[in-house]
Design a protein around this nucleic acid. Structure first.
Lengths: 247, 247
DNA sequence: CGCGAGGTTGATTTGTGTCAATGCACGTGG
DNA sequence: CCACGTGCATTGACACAAATCAACCTCGCG
């Protein structure tokens, strides 16, 4: 009865069982999307809100010279384009990386969801953490060396996968090519390859089969100066209790 | 009776005279803030929403090694931290660059403003364009060479100053040091200095006295591949008319 | 008048990009 | 079932953009 979407929103508000049922209901009908398929493209006017239940999608822009910058990875539970319809034309594109199971929420459903104060708060929380993640990516690309950029991205991805219960063993699926990793970190494919070799030699990252695992998570986080505060994965019940204690 | 805040929100919704009066009223009481003064710091829990009427502030993060990444410039009319209170602790800091005239909007006023559907829409629009600007900064730092990064930033700043009626003559105040420009573009001070020299020699940027002006705006935009779509400065009245035509 | 913050310039180093070749795994069709 | 093609990973040689280090300049201001 639960899915990654519900599990993620738990961090945004203290949901009731009824809230969970509503969320499970609206995300019950999902469709399969092939790998590397477009979802919405720059210039289009979006109507439905998209949400990833399985697989990975991304937000990106393609420059005149053909280079692309990936601006976000959407893991299971993530909403791709909440609110963008207010702006009219899309200023970027969204597409899948792997095969995905996705949900399309029409405007009426969004209205229904936001009418519920706890769900509304949780959706807000999700939007705002997405933006905080974007800010951290800017810091990552703007200030860190290539190897630390890749390490930091991995630390973030692991933390996010764990938050929705999909990385209990400190590993997540290899949903990316090295070229895509480069597009996300502002590095070339060749350089990403070398940085991965260095990280492997340092015992921080192991890529085997279709899994990316981390034998020394603490070391990875230390090396990349990763602090999870920007992801705001604090249990909302604790928050509420903390507030009560103040009164 | 109008100020940069009202002028900016005009782009977000078709405001009525009454809306403008309300906006002017809530932003009537402003306070002076010194240059390089903190507004909110990472870790704090914000309550009021801050808004710049005159001068320039910025959003930034300081890394363990002391480097800082500037993630946004707040020009006159810009809101610094709408909605962040939902997340609890700030994951970044906000501070002034120049002397500023700022408004602090307490939660009750935000409630009053968002109760008005047009103003609510305009505030949403402002948040979403801020996020779009952040995305473009990521593209800028991730994909463009140093000189184009600086040029693109200038093209954006000029466009934004013009949108609030403060750059009729294709120039805006020099609100930054070269070090700050470097923190915003992910370059060192020394390199920013050289890029500015190159831009001057190419006739694209002139910095004289306290003004930064652009003798060849079209050339600047072409050189930096600047397209203003992500700023979403389309007059909402045109949008409404365009929709009517479709019906 | 002298000090300090910010700007400018040169010499040198280094991280990352570019170009090019090779390897490897996997799927497909003969 | 093998041969081939294709997409992705890997490696080396080299080029270049940007960082670093260091000195000096300029100008506003106490």
């Amino acid at each position: 009865m639960t899915n990654a979407f519900v599990r993620k929103l738990e961090y945004g508000a203290a949901l009731t069982d009824e809230d969970r049922r509503l969320l499970a209901t609206v995300s019950a009908t999902s469709r399969h999307v092939a790998a590397r398929a477009p979802i919405i493209e720059e210039g289009e006017e979006p109507s439905d809100v998209h949400l990833v239940l399985e697989g990975v999608a991304c937000r990106y822009k393609i420059l005149p010279d053909g280079n692309r910058q990936i601006m976000a990875f959407f893991l299971p539970g993530d909403i791709c384009d909440m609110h963008v319809q207010i702006l009219g034309a899309m200023d970027h594109s969204i597409g899948t990386l792997t095969e995905c199971r996705m949900v399309e929420l029409p405007p009426e459903v969004i209205v229904e969801l936001t009418a519920n104060p706890r769900i509304n708060r949780a959706l807000w929380w999700a939007s705002l953490t997405d933006e905080a993640t974007l800010r951290e990516w800017l810091v990552n690309i703007g200030q860190r060396s290539g190897i630390r950029r890749v390490a930091h991205l991995f630390a973030e991805l692991l933390t996010r996968y764990q938050a929705v219960g999909l990385a209990a063993d400190d590993s997540f699926p290899v949903f990316f090519t090295q070229e895509e990793l480069g597009s996300a970190t502002g590095l070339t494919t060749v350089h990403v390859n070398r940085m991965l070799r260095d990280l492997r030699e340092q015992g921080l990252v192991v890529i085997e089969g279709r899994r990316c695992s981390f034998p020394d998570v603490a070391g990875l986080k230390r090396f990349s100066a990763f602090t999870p505060n920007y992801l705001h994965f604090r249990n909302p019940r604790h928050k509420a209790e903390a507030k009560e204690r103040l009164i």
